[in-house]
Nucleic acid binder design. Structure first.
Lengths: 198, 198, 198, 198
DNA sequence: GATGAATGAGTGTTCATTCAT
DNA sequence: TATGAATGAACACTCATTCAT
């Protein structure tokens, strides 16, 4: 990995733990094993590191949502949009993804005193997931599996459950394999319960 | 309010926004309108302020849970443990309470790099509320309103919903009257939906 | 002398030589024999040191011009406003005075890139002295020693001569006793020549 | 203009405003629109830029004084060494010339803490002009227009006036057309007054 | 109870310069 | 000719803390 990438990676590692203010340029330089002044060759200033991270995060999400949109359009049967899809794209490439997870933790820390971070936080942790999950359940109405009202309720409940689990398992302490598995199992159990009832 | 109280209040105001490290003794002294050195008359050091806040928070919660336990013991009919109780004690005196809300925000910020704060965070934002809410629904089984399995599921779902709403409405941006009302309404609607179905 | 005074004195010593930008807080602290951080107890920031110096300079000059005004009003004969007066107040307490001389050098250096310093420079090195010197010669008209036109010309010429000598002797290199004497003598010779002709 | 010339030009632009120390290699590179490291292809180091400027200045002046010497030798009547000559060579090619004017400002700033710059400053702003102007008036004695004593006094007075005007008009703020005109007019008026009296 | 004065360590950032390409 | 990448030293300034008063 090149220096610039290493700076971003290590900066985020620390930002996600201690927050922007508590991580010094010295800290970052030390972990990357370069001199502080060298950081200023790659980034205008400390804020520029943060900005680069946000930019990277947003383009990563854009990629994922684009993939989701196109896969929704080409949907022929229910099973093609399923548990596997959720796992592969929503869990593995987003919630469990080291970079995205760290960005979420970072936004969580910064949102209280940084207006622009708060906007990102509200959008990427609540509004966007809620919209996507409701949309996903709406698809089931096309296949006659539930009516719109039911879909909306299921979407809300599922979003609430996923969100709670995200905060409880994925946005506390270290993100371990065990936590990912526990999260996965609880979601699996929830979905089973949900479809069992009906 | 005496100086010591003012220091605690203003320190928490700022800790809950920017985190422990980003708030300086200078900042606190300035808002309290005393000199920095004066803070050291009331507190051993900066960490001592944090410790005092945690202590105050824990004794506040102890008080609330004690009240909850005794009211559960003296329970004669369902209606006496009800929506009003939830509002009065769980919402007003805990989730909406300025001090408790700020402490939750503070723990949320610190938990990622402070082991003892992480333990508090996990306990007071997930484990304790989850236990209390499940217990509450269990009471309904005593009155024959649902069986244990139903109570457990209801407890889980309700906890998930409350938790999600707490993070979305009460632990973002400023805690306004509007947000409290929105939170209140959404919980009310959820409960209605829940009992309607059955 | 107290710390604050020492900081001002030593800062000016260096500012007058190297200019504001070339003198570091480190430099000042070192000469005053305190730690850099201690400077910030006495001054808000580096600019605050400059501002304090300017303030001190302006109040010093105010004092001098006030004295001049009152002595002009109480003037009964020519000799009471004379060469001695010039020497005592204009030379000793202003041009030769260490503090004032250093401030002039400082303004000379800063005026090219600092708008507010340029205004001070133009005022205190040209406008004010020119006005005062013309006024002084005007007094001689009251005693019938010359007419207004002659006074104006004498004022202009004298100002030009003093100004040139100031820049040549007092605002170059170190301000030595030898230079002050040379300056004094040249002015004396000029005045003699001036009154000899008439 | 080639890169090397551009570096010199822009460096002087800034040196004359802020002084040597306050202008960084970065600043220069930015205005010339090259990278900092590129400057080191053209100049050994920062000091080398200053040295080149001084060298250029001295050879420029050498050229002017050579022209002056030869024109003095070939002098047949008074009018050929006159007001026009003063304007053309002393004003236009020296005092008003952007490069020379900036060098004078630069020397003015640096002289206080740079020994070699002080020597240049004293020479080129006082000694040389004074000698030249006295010499010029001496020429008038050859044509019987004044005696040596008068020439010396006239030289001194004229030098004082020119010097004062130079500092007041040409070595403060920006060098505008208006200032050059004011300077020109004041010198013209002075000369008129001088020859009128006699 | 409160403060004036001080400090060593640390903050983000800029500096002139080097050197391989 | 010019640059990308790096660096040690310095920059103005803030930090939590101490201690005598």
């Amino acid at each position: 990995m090149e220096t610039k990438e290493l700076i971003l990676k290590n900066a985020l590692d620390m930002f996600a733990k201690s927050g922007y203010n508590s991580v010094s340029i010295r800290d970052i330089a030390k972990t990357v094993n370069i001199k502080e002044s060298s950081i200023y060759y790659h980034f205008k200033n400390k804020q520029d590191i943060l900005d680069s991270l946000v930019e990277k995060y947003e383009s990563h999400i854009k990629e994922l949502t684009d993939m989701l949109q196109s896969s929704m359009l080409n949907l022929h049967n229910v099973s093609s949009f399923s548990w596997d899809w959720l796992r592969e794209f929503y869990f593995e490439r987003y919630l469990f993804d080291t970079f995205c997870n760290q960005m979420m933790r970072f936004m969580m820390i910064e949102q209280f005193h940084n207006e622009s971070m708060r906007i990102l936080y509200e959008h990427y942790l609540f509004k966007l997931p809620h919209r996507i999950q409701t949309q996903s359940f709406m698809i089931l109405t096309k296949f006659g599996m539930m009516n719109e009202k039911q879909a909306e309720k299921a979407g809300n409940d599922f979003f609430a459950y996923i969100t709670m689990l995200t905060f409880q398992y994925l946005l506390t302490g270290e993100l371990t394999k065990a936590k990912k598995d526990a999260f996965d199992q609880e979601v699996f159990a929830y979905i089973n319960r949900m479809f069992q009832e009906d």
